[in-house]
């Protein structure tokens, strides 16, 4: 039976490998700046709205954003960062 410390070390190494990006991934991200092109999931609904032209206005984007809203986010409040 493997020693508990060895199991812990193996588990830790697996956790680290799963939780962090490899150097290759980091390089890939830096070299391919559109890899996570902004807003793709949001604009999907804009592009697929029936009966609209291909032209997308700022109003279309605002409505698509509202429709695709994930819900009230957990995020730091402005007051924790800045004072008026």
């Amino acid at each position: 039976m493997p020693h508990p410390v060895r199991l812990l070390l193996i588990g830790g190494a697996l956790f680290a490998a799963a939780g962090c990006a490899s150097n290759d991934e980091w390089t890939t991200w830096k070299d391919h700046r559109t890899h996570f092109a902004s807003g793709e999931h949001m604009f999907f609904s804009v592009k697929n709205r029936e009966g609209t032209s291909a032209r997308v206005s700022r109003g279309d984007i605002a409505m698509a954003r509202d429709e695709g809203w994930w819900g009230k986010p957990i995020t730091v409040s402005q007051e924790q960062i800045l004072e008026r």
Binding site: C20, A21, E25, W26, F36, S38, G39, E40, H41, M42
Partner: peptide, 12 residues
């Protein structure tokens, strides 16, 4: 607003 990317999420 950006597409959540598993690759991006794996970065530190």
């Amino acid at each position: 607003e950006q597409e959540p990317s598993p690759q991006f999420a794996r970065l530190s």
